[in-house]
Design a protein around this nucleic acid. Structure first.
Lengths: 191, 191
DNA sequence: TCTGTTATATAACAAATGTTATTTTATCAG
DNA sequence: CTGATAAAATAACATTTGTTATATAACAGA
């Protein structure tokens, strides 16, 4: 009988995940992952055929962490505002993950972005409760809100701005409210 | 007397600049630059002590291109709106340059960002003409406008959204106007 | 035309990194 | 307690890339 597997797939994924969190994706390599686990590179290539395969599993884990952030406050997201704040908070807590998920070509398509992906069109409906807009109007309005939210998140992830949670909450809340008020006023004037 | 220098510093900088434009910073290396020039790597290391030194000069050239975009419409920027559009257009025309300048930690500090850097506080004054706000109010308002602009630009640079110039102009114009209307209305209600 | 200077080519070296061959070692069924 | 099995260590190989040593060649002044 062979010895027990000392380093499992999950151990290796976890070590890589931590390494990316601490130093970013560009400084990951087989030897560093092994170093973090205190082993040679063999367990890695025993469990994964290539580094690419390992990284793809880590990517999945990173995405799960993002979803966890977006889903907090319950399976059924209560608050439109909270989703925006969670997006930014994820960028603040895991800047390297945010960069991988949302600041690269390969990682995100437009549909996913607008829809806040896994959450589907629920976010539109939740937004409607705040805005009172029709579904189609809210969809258009949501794009603007999300672009603003994404703008803050990118600046946070790259550490260009270093606002506190309170400052960010105020900035986002005020701006979205102002955007909405302006949007409604604009609609009225068009009549 | 030595032979004439066939590959000048500027030739090498230009080749590297083109390479980054086409394939991004991560695929640049000495042999590729040499290949683009049709020479060996020697001219590169004859003109620059290290690749880092070369890349730092290219960075300067990239920044100059950005400034060229922001400055168009005259040395004295006429239009607040045009600056936002130029920022986004730069991201659309030179996504790899935009990423280097504005989507990395190392490249940008908060003060530079808010001020649209080289343009100084002029942008605030130009913005005031549009908004009619006081200098301090406009400064705060400008941050919001610029975050939104930056959000679009990041999405354009990563090809997450692929709006036409017209769509972007409409999106930016409408949103900024709505933000302003909401901002003013909000101020009034505070009284 | 010859020669010194130096730009460029060629080739090599070193470090980093993915990957693999070979050896060592831990486990447990017998 | 022992041997078959496979996990892990060690070491090596291949490729990529920055950098440098050496050889070649082009130019201008003598």
């Amino acid at each position: 009988m062979p010895p027990i597997r000392k380093y499992t797939k999950e151990d290796i994924v976890e070590a890589t995940y931590q390494l990316i969190k601490e130093e970013g994706i560009s400084s990951v390599n087989a030897r560093k992952v092994a170093g973090k686990l205190g082993c040679s590179v063999q367990p890695i290539f025993h469990n994964f055929t290539t580094m690419e395969e390992l990284l793809s599993e880590v990517h999945r884990k990173i995405y799960a962490k993002y979803q966890e952030y977006m889903m907090r406050g319950g399976n059924d997201p209560k608050s439109y505002k909270q989703m925006g704040l969670s997006y930014i908070e994820f960028a603040a807590d895991y800047p390297e993950f945010f960069k991988i998920l949302f600041m690269k070509e390969t990682s995100l398509d437009a549909e996913k972005f607008v829809m806040a992906d896994a959450i589907g069109d629920h976010v539109i409906k939740v937004g409607q409760k705040l805005s009172g807009l029709s579904y189609e109007e809210q969809k258009k309005f949501h794009v603007k809100v999300w672009i603003f939210t994404h703008g803050i998140a990118c600046l946070v992830a790259t550490k260009t701005i270093q606002f506190s949670k309170t400052e960010i909450e105020e900035l986002l809340t005020n701006t979205v409210l102002e955007m909405l008020m302006g949007y409604i006023k604009n609609q009225e004037e068009d009549k």
